[in-house]
Design a protein around this nucleic acid. Sequence first.
DNA 1: TAATTAAAGACCTGAATGGTCCTGTTTCGG
DNA 2: CCGAAACAGGACCATTCAGGTCTTTAATTA
Lengths: 154, 154
Amino acid sequence: MLKLSRLADYAIVILVKLGEQDGVVTSPALAAITGVPEPTVAKVLKVLSAHGFVLSQRGAKGGYRLARSLADMSVASVIAAVDGEIALTACVGGRECDTGLSCGLCGSWDVINTAIRSTLEGISLESMRPKEACSTVLAQINKLNATQTVREGA
Amino acid sequence: MLKLSRLADYAIVILVKLGEQDGVVTSPALAAITGVPEPTVAKVLKVLSAHGFVLSQRGAKGGYRLARSLADMSVASVIAAVDGEIALTACVGGRECDTGLSCGLCGSWDVINTAIRSTLEGISLESMRPKEACSTVLAQINKLNATQTVREGA
DNA sequence: TAATTAAAGACCTGAATGGTCCTGTTTCGG
DNA sequence: CCGAAACAGGACCATTCAGGTCTTTAATTA
């Protein structure tokens, strides 16, 4: 299915919502806004804080706020922070497959990984915000498809 | 991590290897070639057969062979056959998020899903074969990156 | 100093994936 | 005609890991 982990999903939602608030926001408040369970929100925020996406302020009247603008955060970077490196398969960077498969495809996998990574790096959290930005991204996709000519099958 | 399931990984390796043989090949033989455990190979081949990627021949002297050329199989189609639809997150096609998140980002996710899908559809199994085809795909990636200008963050 | 809130980490649970096996059914060879 | 070989199609188990909870500690403010 090639699906994203839910934590990464949450992380993106949380960041976007956090960007729409002003001042510091507590994790319970963000939980209320997003509908994500509070402990999970806290967990995600810790990770995001550790990776420099948000700034935390401890103590009374503490909370979180964005470390930089949404436009300066790519979807890829958030996913990488929460879930680790984006890699579709075990054999990455020329390392041998763990199972010792004689697949000989390791290099080719890297190509795919790079393609996916580039795609996600090209999408900022700013463009994830509802409505307005969608058309922009859609235009990108169309241009992207026009470029894609390697081949397609049924 | 956004990683591919191992079954889909195997499926691609098996198809590529199958394409390099001539005549029908038994699943034990493919297991030997790929290094994947035989029962697993058999399982994957059944799925691939059901989805029309390979043709099976039953009985003694039976085995499998490709239903069409590797160039006519996209990475995306194989993944979709083995793992189901490619979708990075729960909210797809405008459906509400199952958790009832008030994320309001559902539409934006679709954009990402489409982008990933297009990328993988642009890569054929033929181009997964070692060596020769890599340069071609790499050129694609570069062109693709040049097109991507939405924005990128740290 | 007391209350509030984030930081950090241990820990539990459950779903889902990967992997195995078993029982047909078909086809070829003797 | 019979047996072996090989696919078909399940059921089934086991392991992993993500997701979520709880507890303790530390910092900040009133």
